[in-house]
């Protein structure tokens, strides 16, 4: 009996989270256009709805009704599946991210029977409180690379191919640094369970203990999310949108969705690992989480308005020669500190 209640509550949580996340993705596009607009002496979208607020809706409808151009590509199945791989891989990590303190009471009464939700942590603001949540997130978000590579390969377009090749090299160099940067947090928290990591930050967020780790994570996250200055795989000016040149309609829409979902995911992970997650005074915990994530997303957009794009070889050398040694040094220092004081 209890497991039905668990299942229903988890389903509701998943549905709400998915709805909020997809809405957030849609509004991240609006936010990007608005913020870029204001930074660049423009207005951004302001035609659809008050202050352009319905623009994401209009964009979605437009993409949905656009013709899905079917090209005589060499690998039609891969071509069709690639956007889905990327989109799913970008959204799935949210399963493991704690987005609020509690979302349900510890016990509920169903048909006169008391069900203890706290037993499996069902009442908490996380869908799956995995013991290896950090590994899960790293593993799943790496999968999005496959979508890009396959999409670039299957498009039968040389620009897309170059974009796909770039993404493999970029991901190998940056996933490593990303993972290494996170290790520092794991050492400090002594756990891979994200809820425990957030709980451990009740007094002080880990950015205080891990300032270098935070910077390294964020830098690698820019590469992971393929944002300026590391947006080499889809740079319009060289590769004419790169891997998604040949995509249209909702397939293109899925790639776009994945891009913004990726930004939100890496921001949310950064918030959880370094900025105290949902912890915060006065405001409800879920709101804190949204605010912190929103601030990081804003930072992503801000950087886009400020920096040029690095070159392919510079990206590689930066990843291997700067980020990786620094993150290894960070692990060493953190390990020593934990061993000494811990």
């Amino acid at each position: 009996m209890d497991w039905i209640v668990y299942g229903v509550i988890t389903l509701i949580k998943t549905a709400v989270l998915l709805f909020v996340l997809l809405t957030a993705v849609a509004y991240a596009t609006l936010m990007e256009r608005k913020v870029l607009g204001f930074m660049q002496l423009r207005l951004g979208p302001n035609r659809v709805g008050p202050w352009g607020l319905l623009q994401p809706l209009a964009d979605g409808v437009k993409l949905f009704f656009k013709e899905d151009i079917s090209l005589p590509v060499s690998e039609p199945r891969l071509y069709a599946i690639a956007p889905w791989v990327t989109a799913v891989a970008a959204i799935t990590p949210f399963l493991a991210i704690p987005f609020a303190d509690t979302v349900a009471p510890e016990t509920v009464e169903v048909f006169g029977r008391t069900v203890d939700l706290a037993q499996y942590g069902i009442h908490r603001g996380v869908i799956a409180d995995l013991p290896g949540a950090v590994l899960f997130i790293l593993a799943i978000s790496s999968l999005s690379t496959y979508g890009v590579v396959l999409g670039g390969w299957a498009s039968d377009n040389r620009y897309s191919l170059l974009g796909g090749i770039r993404v493999t090299a970029q991901m190998i160099s940056y996933e490593l640094s990303l993972g290494m940067a996170v290790v520092g947090v794991l050492l400090v928290a002594g756990s891979m369970r994200l809820t425990e990591i957030v709980d451990a930050q009740a007094r002080l967020p880990f950015i205080v203990y891990q300032p270098l780790g935070f910077v390294l994570y964020l830098t690698a996250a820019f590469a992971e999310a393929c944002r300026t200055p590391f947006d080499l795989i889809e740079c319009e000016n060289e590769l004419v949108a790169g891997y998604h040149t040949e995509y249209s309609s909702m397939k293109f829409g899925l790639f776009q969705l994945a891009e913004y979902a990726h930004i939100i995911t890496v921001s949310a992970v950064a918030v959880t690992l370094y900025l105290g997650g949902w912890q915060g005074p006065w405001l409800p915990s879920g709101l804190w989480f949204v605010l912190k994530t929103g601030a990081l997303v804003f930072f992503f957009i801000w950087v886009r308005a400020t920096y040029p794009r690095v070159r392919y070889d510079q990206l590689m050398s930066f990843g291997w020669k700067v980020l990786l040694p620094l993150s290894l040094a960070n692990i060493l220092a953190t390990g020593c500190a934990v061993a000494w004081w811990g």
Binding site: L36, M39, Q40, L41, R42, T228, P229, D231, C235, N237, R304, A305, T306, Y307, P308, R309
Partner: peptide
């Protein structure tokens, strides 16, 4: 070179 803002 990827820097959007100077254009505007």
């Amino acid at each position: 070179l990827g820097a959007m803002t100077p254009l505007f």
